[in-house]
């Protein structure tokens, strides 16, 4: 994992996408996240909005955009659930910020790096969710770290497949 100068990487490898991609891909992720559990039943060990947040944050390498993307995705997720709006929002906001911050310093084109980053950020997102629920809001929450680990692995596997596909959608200027 080669560490490069931040300015150099930002200048050379900022991924840019058409506006349609910025709109449709997160929307598709939200829709699929809402619909796929009907198909796969209880084996919904993935979080597509989080994967998309990480991808765009890593690709754009802009903490603000990553923060906004994470906040939007999290708030949408919360809005579609019966939970308080903002729990996922906070978690994914921080994750988006962190992913963009890491993407500035690390070569994120490597598959192994992507897997590890997605795995780690997924677990961190779960930890944030638990932190907001239990410590910030003092809400009773059922929790299983095994489920969170499986979800993180699922997100990493999805990232392995999805990231190269999304890379094809970026615009080359």
């Amino acid at each position: 994992m080669a560490l490069l100068g931040a300015d150099l990487r930002r200048d050379l490898e900022i991924h840019r996408y058409p506006l349609l991609v910025y709109t449709l891909v997160p929307l598709t992720a939200l829709v699929l996240q809402a619909w796929l559990p009907r198909v796969v039943g209880r084996y919904d060990w993935f979080d597509l909005p989080l994967v998309i947040t990480i991808y765009f944050a890593l690709g754009r390498r802009s903490p603000i955009q990553g923060t906004l993307m994470g906040a939007a995705m999290g708030l949408f997720e919360d809005a579609l659930s019966h939970n308080a709006i903002g729990i996922n929002g906070i978690a994914k906001t921080v994750v988006g910020f962190l992913a963009a911050s890491v993407g500035i310093r690390i070569d994120v084109e490597n598959t192994t790096v992507r897997i590890l980053l997605t795995l780690g950020l997924s677990l961190f997102s779960s930890a944030l969710y638990l932190f907001v629920n239990r410590f910030l809001l003092d809400l009773a929450t059922e929790w299983s770290w095994l489920t969170e680990l499986l979800r993180a692995v699922g997100n990493a596997l999805i990232a392995v497949v999805l990231f190269p596909l999304l890379d094809r959608l970026q615009s080359r200027d």
């Binding site: 903490p63 603000i64 923060t67 906004l68 906040a71 708030l75 308080a84 709006i85 903002g86 729990i87 929002g89 906070i90 906001t93 921080v94 910020f97 911050s101 907001v132 910030l136 809001l137």
Partner: peptide, 17 residues
């Protein structure tokens, strides 16, 4: 700027919660 935006968004969400 990045941290400020982050903190602003987080604070807004915490208030909303």
């Amino acid at each position: 700027r990045n941290l400020v935006v982050l903190l602003a968004i987080l604070v807004a969400q915490i208030v909303g919660l």
